[in-house]
């Protein structure tokens, strides 16, 4: 059973410590909703798990299927069965979706020497495109180039469907999607989850997505630390009250408030 285990993870970007001792487990078949205010470190956690070079692991460990991910390159992590659907997917001009996904799939399958035939791959791709109600010509367009915001997000899910990971991290997959697209994308995520018992870490600010993709657990990340965990009632609480009361409960002051206080103290000493 695939399991992602994060222990006391500290990570920085450009010399600034963003994650400060994150502990989190995600099991196969489980949906974990990761919530938190803007700038709390949710995307940093996603990128740190997936080995983005801009994020430096300062301390702690990330294990997947018993392997220490911090010692592996991004592609190795992907081939183990991890997937990150990005908040702002990159455009790659001159490379078609079809070629890109085929190569990624071939790479994944190489271990067992069972490369998918081009015919079978095309059928699978066409079916996935149809499931996501995307334009048929999208397969032969360049990766994310001239895609609308919604098309880019659907394209992330298309890649996820094709690669069939064991655990996926969805970073604001619903931003830029209209109501119908949120439903379609969610249905596809749920179907893949059911089919493969895929585990999910879902990052979103909006309740609507969680109405479709039911979380098993809700965790709240504030200032780089997980401060609260609970069931879906926690999500309802946040929806009504925001994050302020959770911050107060955890004894967290906004960094801006702290800075103001420091400035005030300095002035006072003058």
């Amino acid at each position: 059973m695939a399991k992602l285990v994060i222990k006391d993870l500290w990570a920085s970007a450009a010399g600034v410590m963003i994650l400060k001792g994150v502990n989190l487990e995600i099991n196969e078949g489980e949906v974990v909703a990761l919530m938190g205010p803007n700038g709390s470190g949710k995307s940093t956690l996603a990128y740190a798990i997936m080995g983005h070079p801009a994020y430096k692991i300062e301390k702690g460990s990330i294990e997947f299927d018993g392997k220490n991910l911090t010692e592996l390159t991004t592609d190795m992590r992907a081939r183990l069965g991890l997937f990150l659907a990005m908040q702002s997917p990159y455009e790659i001009s001159g490379v078609t979706n079809r070629d890109f996904i085929k190569q990624a799939l071939d790479k994944k399958e190489t271990k067992g020497n069972k490369l998918i035939s081009y015919y079978k791959f095309s059928l699978k791709l066409e079916e996935a495109i149809k499931d996501l109600e995307m334009d048929k010509d999208l397969a032969d367009r360049y990766v994310n180039e001239s895609f609308s915001g919604g098309e880019k997000k659907k394209n992330e899910i298309l890649q996820m469907k094709m690669l069939e990971p064991k655990i996926s991290i969805l970073d604001e997959i619903d931003s830029g999607l209209d109501v119908d697209a949120v439903r379609i994308v969610s249905e596809n995520i749920n179907n893949l989850k059911e089919k493969n018992n895929m585990g999910l870490m879902v990052i979103s600010h909006y309740h609507r997505l969680y109405e479709y993709i039911k979380p098993s657990r809700v965790v709240v990340l504030i200032n780089g630390t997980i401060v609260k965990e609970g069931d879906t009632s926690l999500m309802d609480f946040i929806d009504k009250n925001g994050f302020d009361s959770i911050k107060r409960e955890a004894g967290i002051e906004d960094e801006i408030t702290l800075l103001e206080t420091c400035a005030f103290k300095v002035n006072k000493n003058d």
Partner: peptide, 17 residues
């Protein structure tokens, strides 16, 4: 990074670009 996050090695990613 984007290409590698889908399982392509650095050299594969470089080549494809």
């Amino acid at each position: 990074y984007y290409l590698m996050s889908r399982g392509l090695t650095y050299n594969d990613a470089l080549r494809i670009i």
